[in-house]
Amino acid sequence: MSETDPIQQQKITTYIWYAVILVCLTIVAFPTIMLVCVGMVPTAIATFIDRTEDKYSVYCIAGGNFCGVFVYLLELWGSHNNISAANTIFSEIFPLLIMYASAGFGLIIFMVLPPIISSVLQAIAQRRLNLLRVVQTKLVEEWGETLIPADPSTEKLAVDTKPE
């Protein structure tokens, strides 16, 4: 217990600092904070739902979500930048739809892209492996099976590269 205390304390300190910054930002730019808080709700939900350590899904959803929110942040900053302007944005369904749909788009990317990327990486490695095997087969065809070292670990490879 005594070992975990400093970590817990450090976390608490970090959260206190986040709260201080949030309070300061709220005081300085309340409409912006309000827009971000409302617009980034999907990201907050994703953060709570994703229990993995790395939370890769949060990066994707947050990325998409922020793109959607950023459009209206610019609109807010370009208008009066007050609570009323923020309320105007919230009062319409389309901005909310854009913000949340962009978060959904991030989620879709997170669901679709990883298997594709994984397959591509494997295909590249397999292609290199095949090339090496072709080289080995040609060497064995030219110089005979005595090239194959008498190592049990290479037995499978030897069978694969044995010329017909």
Binding site: D54, Y59, C60, L113, P114, S118
Partner: peptide, 16 residues
Amino acid sequence: ETAGERVTAIISVLGT
């Protein structure tokens, strides 16, 4: 899966 997710996360951040 993890590798794909990692790459996807990186792509997402860069894309954002």
